[in-house]
Amino acid sequence: MAVKKLERYKMRGLINKDKLLLIAFLFTFISFWFLLPDYAINTISLSFCNGLVILGLLLLMRAGLISFGHGMYYCLGGYAVAMTYNFLQIKEVFVLIAFSVLAGFIVSFFLGFFVRRFRGIFFAMLNLALSMILFGIIVKSISLGSTDGFGIKELTYFNHAIEDEKRLNIFSYLLIVILTSLMMMIVMTFLKSPSGKILEAIRENEIRSSYLGISINKQIHKIYIFSSTLAALGGGLMVILIGHITPEDTAYWTRSGEFVFVAILSGSLNVFAPLIGSLFFEFIRSYALFYFPNTWQMIIGVVLILGILYLPEGIGSIFNKRKK
């Protein structure tokens, strides 16, 4: 019966191989809560928060762009959660998440009018500059927490206070895994749609795209907002997971560089790649730090070189075949 139903959904195009894979991905990671030790669950959760930023970068990469300043939106999302919590005394997780998404959306909407006119290295560096401006503003403002940042304490889920005092509990884990999977589903649907394919046309040939009647700047603006909002959501979830945010951990250029590093390592072939890439990076970093505390950056560098040599299209190319 269930098989027949599934076949019917397949026929209508409601379920395809990628969506089934995503559902399997979701349930696998939910089951990990019961199977893996705390440190692994913590690494997975943090990877997914960062993975959302990489997912945002994937969208830009589809249009042939890269941002060296996406840490800015990660920071904005995180600060939106932390400041709403501290200044408005709102403890409800879903409201806090809504504030982080809203912060990313509004700021990227306005900055988008400016950055959408630039391409290539200019686009990348402009975002880096904006990120460093935000970093400078926060560091020099006592009211914004300066270098100490902000912390948050107990949270509520649908007005229900959590008794578990640990930041990483089943609720925060499920929230991160489910929201991440939902975003992957949205991005996957978007990339398959005409709207998503237009990005590939822009990346391939901007002149022809213009002559087809595509408004390039508007399309780039749209994708910039989408991408930045995902990064802000990642930042918001990270604060809920860790309970603290500082400008140095989010808006400083090294953080944005790390996101670009993982984005290159992951590639832009499919929506699983950013999350797998982010997980891979966090585990490599954890083990490298543990076994080679003084030379862990070298290990990371070697991994990137191997990735470029053997997987030039990124980790995603392992399980992505060109479809005809």
């Binding site: 195009g13 398959k192 749609s193 709207s195 394919k197 009647g213 595509i214």
Partner: peptide, 15 residues
Amino acid sequence: LVAKNKQNALFEDAY
């Protein structure tokens, strides 16, 4: 797709 003014369509499979 562009000629049919579908460049902003979100809920259909382009290919």
